[in-house]
């Protein structure tokens, strides 16, 4: 019974919850808490999978009253499968982290060599070229890369807002959050995984960086920078559909009269996130462990 309930909960968390949560409008008013909620949902789904793997053999053995040898075999098999799940996750985390580091190191090197501002700043690098863009290279030795085109299109206030946005990404280590979700996505078998958490968390992290930037420089400059940098470049319509939608969502948050962040909503979301992790453990896993301790051939 425990295995069935954990399985149902795990499938609900990984297949049913992500869709509505990604579409919900209230998340715009509590981006930080919602990122934590996504982490809690993802982690709880993994724990459910581990719970099913460990509980199902024990419950089958107990239901069929099998002998000692079969019980031992079932225990070993269960632990083996659980270990495979954990190792697969860890390997995925390691691979994503490694690939990111290689790509970042290359970017850092080239941006440092090409810097047109002659290293006036420890972090900011300016590249020749009219195409306006801005991005950051996270890590222990971070960089913010702007093009000359960006400096031409934006005024000082707007550049300051963009830099504040990027610095917020870097100092809050949003890259680590994004890497962990990417690693989970890659580790989960195709029929069970959903892109929704990845895309939702990405835009929530952008919202968090926007909030940090507007606290320092106000809504106006940031909104103008988003409009100027996101639109078509010359006659090139480069922005893919989902990026255009994300930009509209961010612009709506920065529009005059848009609701700000909501502390009470955030507190409620944090409580739900904690409950998703704690309640299944207390209500399902602990009673099962109690029973299993008597049954397992330990």
């Amino acid at each position: 019974m425990t295995a069935l309930l954990l399985g149902a909960l795990g499938l609900t968390l990984s297949l049913i919850v992500p869709g509505p949560l990604a579409r919900a409008r209230w998340t715009a008013r509590a981006p930080g808490a919602t990122v934590v909620l996504w982490q809690s949902v993802t982690l709880a789904a993994v724990l459910c999978a581990l719970g099913v793997v460990l509980a199902a053999p024990e419950e089958l053995v107990r239901a069929h009253g099998a002998d000692q040898t079969f019980g031992v075999a079932a225990l070993v098999a269960a632990l083996g499968v659980a270990a495979v799940i954990v190792v697969r996750l860890l390997v995925s985390v390691g691979l994503v982290a490694y690939r990111s580091r290689v790509r970042r190191a290359r970017h850092r090197l080239l941006a440092d060599l090409l810097d047109a501002h002659a290293g006036l700043d420890d972090v900011v690098r300016v590249l020749d070229g009219g195409l306006p863009f801005a991005y950051c290279v996270p890590g222990r030795s971070p960089r913010i890369v702007l093009s000359q085109g960006t400096l031409r299109v934006l005024d000082t206030q707007q550049v300051a807002a963009v830099l504040a946005h990027e610095r917020a990404h870097l100092s809050a280590r949003h890259d680590v959050v994004m890497e962990s979700f990417t690693a989970f996505y890659r580790a989960v078998p195709a029929p069970l995984r959903s892109r929704a958490p990845l895309d939702a968390v990405h835009i929530l992290l952008e919202a968090l960086a926007d909030d940090a930037a507007r606290r320092r420089h106000g809504n106006g400059p940031l909104r103008e920078a988003l409009q100027a940098l996101g639109g078509p470049v010359g006659d090139l319509e480069l922005e893919p559909h989902d990026a255009a939608r994300e930009r509209r969502w961010r612009l709506d948050r920065l529009a005059p009269g848009a609701p700000g962040t909501d502390a009470r909503l955030s507190a409620a979301i944090y409580a739900v996130a904690a409950a998703i992790l704690v309640l299944p453990t207390v209500l399902l896993v602990v009673p099962w462990l109690d029973r299993a301790m008597h049954t397992w051939p330990l």
Partner: peptide, 19 residues
């Protein structure tokens, strides 16, 4: 293309395949 790339963070969205 399958997963979002976590290596770099852009101020606005990246360029699509056509772009």
């Amino acid at each position: 293309g399958a997963a979002r790339d976590a290596a770099l963070a852009h101020f606005v969205g990246r360029v699509g395949p056509d772009g």
